[in-house]
Structures are given as structure tokens and as C-alpha cells.
Design a binder for these strands. Structure first.
Lengths: 227, 227
DNA sequence: CCAAAAGTGTTTGCTCTACACCCATGG
DNA sequence: CCATGGGTGTAGAGCAAACACTTTTGG
């Protein structure tokens, strides 16, 4: 029951799992803790929610502080509230995950606090502070799951991208090879991306560039996109 | 960034969308607020999270206080943190939903506070306090979605149930008729429920009773169960 | 002209859907 | 014996999976 009294309150934080593609791998941004507890350990970017700040804005602020990026795909994951998760006392954390494009200019150094920041491939994570390993594991599960029935994948790519790049993105995250023709047919049928008139050349034949259709519904209701 | 200082903290509550089947309809338990703000309006059961209490336990406690029920399917929904959602100040709420069996003995009167409690069919909700209409709408969406690829439906039925009852449950919640033979084939194929040796008689031919297989994985990974 | 990646359709198998009749009981 | 809900199989359609060759460019 609501009451206006003020009991002692748990502290409230946000933590953000920031995903990107780097060196053809899915990576997560971690920062090295300067203070106790877990001083020296790696942890997710996160911090306290201030009194007037919406939760999503707090998550965006963490993203901005650690990467310098102002806009990204951001989604609430889960709220972690085990009373023992922080040795300093009761701290409840609302976890988010963010996808940032592989071409974004990230200053992964010198966030608001002088702590070190680094990208870690998802399969080479160190042991993290608090319950952050669990949070990342859950974030990864959600991301994979989401790829299967939506088209969020392109949020990890530059604004314009080729179908080959998109397919590689899916393969990296899902960890399996996909059939080129089936992939193209389905991703286009979903109607979430559209061809541009531009091409990208490099090795081999130039590839048509595609982009997100801002008017599209990002979720494909009907059925899973991939096996 | 974490710091051990203590800024002013948002208040933290849990709210619980309690679903049940009554009179062949999906219903939600609401309580009438005795106090300001929104005095007299209906609202979700909910309350402050105490310092040592896990979130899920706080949600269970609310469920117990309002219904007298100790065990039920319970799942975290989403965390609502708009700074303006409560006129008294900053209140962040972790929302849960619960499914309680249609045969459970609910004392829907005289919870811990003397406020009135009542079941409302999901399509006859009054205008609720705070953002509680949004929370219920989201809870319903999640429940429907979950029915399509898992078998949570039976959580709303007695321990033993017939396939006819289960199918009616699905039809009530999804709001569409399902084909009997296809329903049975798929729900059994999913391997989440198993036949007992008992039967239930009433009108017409007695029906075999089924029950949940406690050892089963509740989620059917592969594919949606229903269209 | 060779290497590299882009681009493109068709066949096959499987899964989902639609559909109708007999069975067991209680009144 | 009649009314009521329980229980069962199959054929056809639509979707998903598997599969190989041609095209375009840069070096």
C-alpha cells in the first residue's frame, strides 16, 4: 500500500550493457572500478538515478559519459534487487542494454570519472563486480532472442549498410552460419530496411547499400525470422 | 559510477497485476484507495519495498496481503520510473504479474489495510490511479504473448485440469476460438503437461485430467504454439 | 584474367490448417 | 434414448530449407 511516509529507502541505480561490433566480434564496454567494493575489478557502466531523472534518461546519461554517444538503441532489460548484491547496502539496479553502431566515434577513455574503460569480446569477459556477469548474460540472451523475430541487428551497423554486413552481424551474434539467399529474402520481406541508390565498393563486386525505414514497425509480429 | 554517498533517493515500490479466471473471464484484482492521492480510485495492489526484502518477495507479500495466497506464478514485468507518475514525489515501481488458479481460495476482502478489493474483468477496467492502466495493458500483452510460445496457461487452472478447460483458458485470454484437434496435438507435443489416471465427470463424457510436469522446461524454445 | 564478394530461383520436405464423426456418460 | 462435451486422423496448402551458378569490380 502506498503511504507518504519515508521509511529508509533502497538506493536506485541503472547499469547499462553497451554492445558493439568490433573486429568482427560482439563486444561489451566495461569500466575498471577505482573504489571499493570490487576496486580494480571490471564492471558495467552505471550509476545512481537522480531525483528528477527518468530511468531511461539515466541510462542514456551513463552511455554518454562513458562513450560520448548521444543516441543509440536502448531497451530496459530487468531490475535486479537481491539485498546482497551490493556489499555496501541495499542497492536496486535497473539494467538496460544499448546497441551502438560499429562506426560510432567512441571515446572509451576518460569518462566523467577517471576510471579506465575497455571493450571486451562477449566470450572473453573477466569476472565482474556485483552481479554484472548475470546481467550481461541476460542481455545477450535478449539480444539473440530479439534478432530472431525483429531486425534490431542493423542498430549495430552504420546508417547505410550492405546485406552482407548485416548477415555477418547476425552470424556473429547468433553464432551460426546463415544461408545467404534465405537471409536476404526474409530480411527484405520483413520490410524493415530499404535499398538506397548507393553502392559500397571494396573487395569484389560493389554491394548495394540499404538503410532502416524509419516508418517501419521494427518488430515482425508474425513469426521468427530465423531458425 | 557507484559512490557510497547518499543523495536523496527515489522511493521504491512494487505493483502486482494479479490475474485469475472467474466467470469464464480473465480478471484482475484491484483495490480502492483510501488515501490521497487518487483517493477513491481503483489501483493495483502494491507497496513499498522494505530494506532487506528481495523484490520478488515484496511482490509475493503484496499478493499474500490482498489474497491470502502464498504461492503463485510470478514474473517481473517492467520498471516504471517517470518522475511525474506519482504526484507525491519520485516513486519508482517495479511491476510484476501473477497468475492464480481459478480454484484458489481468495479472501479478496480485508487485506492488511482496510481498503476494499474487487475483481474486474480485463475489458471492464475503470480508470485507475497512477499509470496503472498502462501497467495492466502491458501485463496483458505479455501474458498473451507468453501463451503463444509457452504453456503458462495452466497456472490459471486447478492442479489437475482437462484439456477442454485448458483450451477454454487459452481462448478466453487470446480472445479467439482454437481448433480442438490442433490444440490438443500441440499442447501435448510440447511435453509440458502429462495425463493422469483420473477423470473428471460432469456434463457429457468424462474427461481425462492432466497436470503440469514439474520436471518440464516451461518454455517451448522452438516455435510459437499458436497462430 | 584472376580473386573476391554480390546477387539471384527453384525444388523438396515439412509444418500448419482445415475439417467431421464416433464415444462415454448423466439425466 | 437424447443431450453434452470428449476424443480422434488425414489431405492439401503454404512456408521454410537446401542448394550452385553468374555477375561485377579491383588488382
Amino acid at each position: 500500500m502506498m503511504s507518504a511516509s519515508s521509511h529508509p529507502r533502497p538506493a536506485l541505480t541503472v547499469d547499462v550493457v553497451i554492445f558493439t561490433l568490433k573486429s568482427s566480434r560482439l563486444q561489451v564496454l566495461l569500466i575498471q572500478r577505482a573504489r571499493q567494493p570490487f576496486a580494480g575489478d571490471w564492471a558495467l557502466p552505471g550509476g545512481f538515478v537522480s531525483m528528477e531523472e527518468p530511468l531511461e534518461e539515466a541510462a542514456m546519461r551513463e552511455l554518454l559519459e562513458e562513450t560520448g554517444i548521444r543516441e543509440a538503441y536502448l531497451e530496459q532489460l530487468y531490475t535486479y534487487g537481491d539485498p546482497d548484491r551490493d556489499p555496501r547496502g541495499r542497492v536496486v539496479s535497473v539494467a538496460y542494454y544499448a546497441l551502438i553502431p560499429s562506426d560510432a566515434q567512441v571515446r572509451s577513455q576518460g569518462g566523467s570519472d577517471a576510471s579506465q574503460a575497455r571493450w571486451f569480446p562477449i566470450d572473453e569477459l573477466p569476472k565482474l563486480a556485483f552481479d554484472h556477469n548475470d546481467i550481461i548474460a541476460y542481455g545477450l540472451r535478449r539480444l539473440r532472442y530479439k534478432l530472431e523475430y525483429s531486425a534490431v541487428g542493423f542498430q549495430l551497423l552504420p546508417e547505410d549498410f550492405t546485406l552482407g554486413e548485416l548477415q555477418r552481424t547476425y552470424e556473429i551474434i547468433l553464432g551460426e552460419k546463415l544461408d545467404k539467399r534465405n537471409f536476404r529474402r526474409r530480411i527484405l520481406q520483413a520490410g524493415i530496411i530499404e535499398p538506397t541508390h548507393r553502392f559500397k565498393s571494396g573487395e569484389g563486386r560493389p554491394a548495394r547499400l540499404y538503410r532502416y525505414r524509419p516508418d517501419a514497425v521494427a518488430e515482425v509480429k508474425a513469426r521468427r525470422l530465423f531458425p
